[in-house]
């Protein structure tokens, strides 16, 4: 009896404790590691691919060395990153490949995210074969001939079919539907992460083996492993509207920046800088290659680029 009463009292106390001090909107909480030691902090989302790391590295370098901010980076997958951006746990995404559903929800409906303009880089997703193979068999670059080569692309993992290697599950992909709708004798094998995919591509290239992979540009790997795109049925506006019935190529996407609305309004110089941040595919690849191939740390790579492209970034600071 007494125990019961005590338990009720305890539950009540807990309730009062948790609710008594009013509402707490957890969507407005920053990272606990932000603003340590009084510095102004900007938190940037880094996606897992190197191009995105290059964006962030340069932006971070300039924010820290030219504007006096402290920058935290968080690696989050694309869709969750939208959520984090909306909550203010991340202040900016510098490279987005197009997420219409999220854009509708957060930018247009909830207005917690603001568009930050073009990154200046145009992205394109496609199917690629290594150039050394395409040169020997020029007709492989048309999707209609892919079935002829299915045998050559076989691996233990794909079993009796040809292997079409896909990357991280976080990437935008229609490949399963494409294989089915184009009636290709291929098996989509998900590498599971871009790192795994790149490692595998490099191993194939080292032995000059043929392979077919989902890939995208801009990407530094083209410089190490030249690849040729396989032409899929041409992209037309809306042909990818129904994910199950897609039978056309991927579009060319001007990559976008997005800012958290509060940060865009109150972020001062940092927000203004990130809005203006814009560079070319070549710039990005230069930094990416330094990070990925020369194994420089992102910071060193950014420093090298910044030292040699003064005019480009001066414009972002004005």
């Amino acid at each position: 009896m007494r125990r019961k009463r005590m338990m009720t009292a305890g539950a009540l106390a807990l309730l009062v404790l948790t609710t008594g001090c009013g509402a707490a909107d957890m969507t407005q909480q920053a990272s606990p590691f932000a603003n340590a030691q009084g510095a102004k902090t900007v938190t940037l989302s880094v996606q897992s691919w190197v191009g995105a790391q290059a964006n962030v590295a340069v932006a971070q370098y300039l924010l820290e060395h030219e504007l006096g901010y402290r920058v935290d980076t968080v690696q989050v997958d694309e869709v969750p990153a939208w959520d984090a951006l909306s909550q203010g746990r991340v202040d900016a995404i510098l490279e987005d490949w197009g997420h219409p559903e999220q854009e509708q929800r957060y930018v247009d409906d909830k207005k917690t995210i603001t568009r930050g303009g073009d990154l200046g880089v145009t992205g394109h997703i496609g199917w690629y074969v290594p150039t050394y193979f395409a040169e020997q068999h020029p007709d492989v670059t048309n999707w209609k001939n892919l079935n002829k080569y299915a045998d050559r692309f076989r691996t233990p993992e794909s079993g009796g079919k040809g292997q079409l290697m896909d990357g991280s599950p976080s990437y935008v992909t229609n490949d399963k539907a494409l294989v089915k709708n184009l009636k290709l004798d291929y098996q989509v094998v998900f590498a599971g992460s871009e790192a795994a995919q790149i490692t595998q591509i490099k191993q194939f290239a080292k032995e000059k083996k043929p392979f077919l992979t989902y890939w995208y540009s801009p990407q530094w790997l083209f410089k190490k492993v030249p690849m040729t795109e396989v032409k899929l049925p041409a992209y037309q506006e809306g042909c990818d509207a129904d994910p199950a019935k897609v039978a056309c190529a991927y579009p060319h996407t001007p990559l976008q920046k997005y800012l958290n609305t509060d940060f865009a309004e109150q972020g001062g110089k940092a927000a203004a800088f990130l809005r203006k941040f814009q560079w070319t595919t070549e710039d990005q690849n230069e930094v990416s290659l330094m990070i990925a191939e020369q194994k420089l740390s992102p910071e060193e790579a950014a420093k090298k680029w910044v030292d040699s492209h003064r005019t480009t970034w001066k414009a972002w600071l004005s």
Binding site: P169, V189, F190, G192
Partner: peptide
């Protein structure tokens, strides 16, 4: 966790769910 290196199956589905917010 092998879903991250192409093991597919359930691991891939979880990674996919996390990555795509699905």
């Amino acid at each position: 966790i092998g879903g991250l290196v192409g093991a597919g199956a359930l691991g891939y589905d979880v990674v996919f769910g996390l990555a795509q917010g699905d």
